[in-house]
Computed example of a mutant assay.
Amino acid sequence: MDITLVQGDITEQRADALVNAANSSLLGGGGVDGAIHRRGGPEILEECRRLRASTYGAGLPTGQAVATTAGRLPARWVIHTVGPVHSASEDRSHLLASCYRESLRVADTLGAALVAFPAISTGVYRWPIDDAARIALDAVLQATTRVAEVRFVLFDARAYAAFESLL
């Protein structure tokens, strides 16, 4: 599997699947989640509502992943995953790693060859970018997957530098 880094907006990436750093409600929010829902249009929200009404009545659990249409985004699917909120007193790194592994597992079931990830949990969930980059890259490199390329789409130069220093 190839790993590439891009600084930019994940909603502009042409990929088979874009990973959404979603909140557990699956109904949109801020940051990456809000941007994906806004740019992707109402089709994504409709599918998320159906998932809430059927499989995920209590919301998507942290570390899990589920796919929907990509709506108007330049991708076939959005893979929604809920990252953990960073805690200084509790090690939640296994949940963050699970977001990447589960997203790749879902990508495999879809037949996705190119998957674009944001830096999950590094926004409002306050995960330190250097640690998040280490966990993300370790999880992806250790994953058993048929995905040919993982693209990390990093919002700013600091996030890009953190991932680049580890690659």
Rank of each mutant, 00 (worst) to 15 (best):
V6S: 06
V6E: 14
Q7T: 02
Q7S: 00
G8V: 01
I10T: 05
E12D: 14
D16E: 10
A17I: 00
A17M: 06
V19C: 05
A21Q: 09
N23H: 09
L26Y: 06
L27I: 06
G30R: 05
D33S: 10
G34D: 14
I36Y: 03
P42Q: 13
P42H: 12
E43D: 15
E46G: 01
C48W: 13
R52V: 15
S54G: 13
S54E: 15
T55I: 12
G57Y: 11
G59N: 10
G59C: 10
L60T: 07
T62Q: 12
Q64P: 01
A65H: 12
A67L: 13
R72I: 00
L73W: 09
A75T: 07
A75V: 12
A75H: 11
T81S: 13
V85W: 12
H86R: 07
S87W: 04
L96S: 05
L96D: 04
C99H: 04
C99T: 03
C99S: 03
Y100S: 03
R101N: 01
E102H: 12
S103G: 07
D108W: 08
A112L: 04
A112D: 00
L114S: 00
F117W: 09
A119K: 00
V124G: 00
L137A: 02
D138S: 14
V140D: 04
T144L: 12
E149V: 10
V150N: 03
R151L: 15
V153R: 08
V153F: 11
V153L: 09
L154Q: 12
L154I: 10
R158F: 06
A159G: 09
A159V: 00
Y160A: 05
F163W: 11
